[in-house]
Every structure is written in C-alpha cells, then in structure tokens.
Design a protein around this nucleic acid. Structure first.
Lengths: 111, 111
DNA sequence: CCATTAATTAACGCATATGTTATATATATG
DNA sequence: CATATATATAACATATGCGTTAATTAATGG
C-alpha cells in the first residue's frame, strides 16, 4: 500500500498542484487548525474526496493530523511551507532583479 | 486545443511537481538558457518526452522559448520563480519561528 | 537536391489520480 | 444500547498524465 510519507520537494509541489489541495492549505494557514469537516466548503466535492486530499497532503508532509474525539484536526506544518520558500531563495542569484522588492516584503520591521 | 498558458499558482506547482520537470527547471536556473537537446540527460527518457515536459513548463509560464535556427532555447522566467517565493513569503506570519534563519539567507550582504 | 540535425506532433498503451456512492469505524449522547 | 456525528476506507468509473515509437516539420550543409 506504500503509505510512507515522501517529503521530497517534487512531492510537495505535486501536492500543492491540485487547486482543491492548495485551497485547503491556504485555508488552514489563514484560519489555523481545523477539523476535516470545516474544510468541506473549499470545493464542491464530497467529504470522502476532501478526506483523500488531506491524505495526500499528509503524505507529502505538508499537514499534520491531531485526533480529538471523532474529529481529526488538521494543521499545516510551518517547516514545510518554509521549505518551499527556501527552494526559491537558494536560487536568489537567478531572480536578482526582484530581490529588493522581496526583501521589503520579508522585512520584520515592515508594517 | 487550448494551448493558452495558465500561469495560476496551482498550475505552476503542478508543473514543478514532476521530478523530471523540477530537474529541468533546476538545470536551466543553474546553467542558464539551453537548447532542448542539452536537457536530454536530466532523466533517462526519450527526446519527445522531454519536449512534452517543456511544453507543460511553458504553458505554466515557468519557462520561455527562443528560436535559434533549428534549435529551441529554453530559459526559466525569473518572475515565475519569484512568484512561488512570494506565495510563501506572504504567509510569513505563519512560519514566524523560521523567519530569522530565512532572513539570513536572503541578506544581500551575506557572503 | 538530398542527407543530417533538432525538435515537435501523432498515435497509442498503461499507470495514476480524482470523483462518486456505499460501507466501515469510532466516539458521543439520549 | 441505539442512534447520531465525524471521518475514513472500499469499490468502481472515467479522466489525465507520462512513457514509447513513428512520422512530421524545419533549418543546415555537402
């Protein structure tokens, strides 16, 4: 059944490559940890479909699951999101021209 | 035939979600613009297969194509890579804890 | 003009992904 | 204990993705 997680970058990108899953991740980042049922409205699909998207995200190492009675609470792993950012940042020489704009966004003093 | 590019974030993630395509992008970033033939060795697959991966990357807006005689020169669009970084960065509050480490990486004075 | 080089497109097979509905599992509750 | 609630898993149909080889297009060069 090969249910072992593969946290490789390509796998993480693939997981985020589905619009429904990207919406789930965005929702969990914006709202914080949520039970599976609360994610029902990110797309017009059945509960089992959502459940399987969550499984894909979990296997990619993007979200973690916590059990609370009959609920499964899902939360995005911050390190995983940071890993995506790191991939782009380690290629910073490449998009030099946009570097300063990005630095402004990153500045902790900003806002 | 619907060959129009869809530069949506999910589409870009999906394009990077294939190991061969991620290798192509990494190669083009590291080595600069290359003809399709020079990308042959990123994976043990046929030339048509590479060609189709390049088409996917092009439709996602990740790479651009320039014609030079019978060669097609491919190059990564820096803005597209930056866009991926921006997605993570606009969620910076989320991975706060890792912020300082990231800031060090981004620092233009570093190295 | 014919052969070579470079790359794409066509046609096809097969594996994986994604959706559905039905069923199972586990916890809570009257 | 019987039922409701929350979620996952099973079984299945269809779509999409990715590989192959063969054929096509286009430019170069003897």
């Amino acid at each position: 059944m090969s249910s072992r997680p593969d946290p490789s970058l390509a796998t993480q990108f693939a997981a985020l490559g589905d619009p429904t899953r990207l919406a789930i991740v965005d929702r969990l980042i914006a709202d914080g940890p949520l039970p599976a049922g609360a994610l029902q409205d990110v797309a017009d699909i059945s509960a089992p479909a959502i459940s399987r998207h969550l499984k894909v995200l979990r296997q990619a190492g993007l979200v973690q699951q916590r059990v609370d009675a009959q609920r499964r609470i899902y939360a995005v792993d911050p390190e995983a999101i940071r890993a995506i950012g790191t991939w782009t940042i380690t290629r910073q020489e490449f998009w030099q021209g946009s570097l300063d704009r990005l630095a402004v966004l990153l500045d902790p003093d900003k806002d």
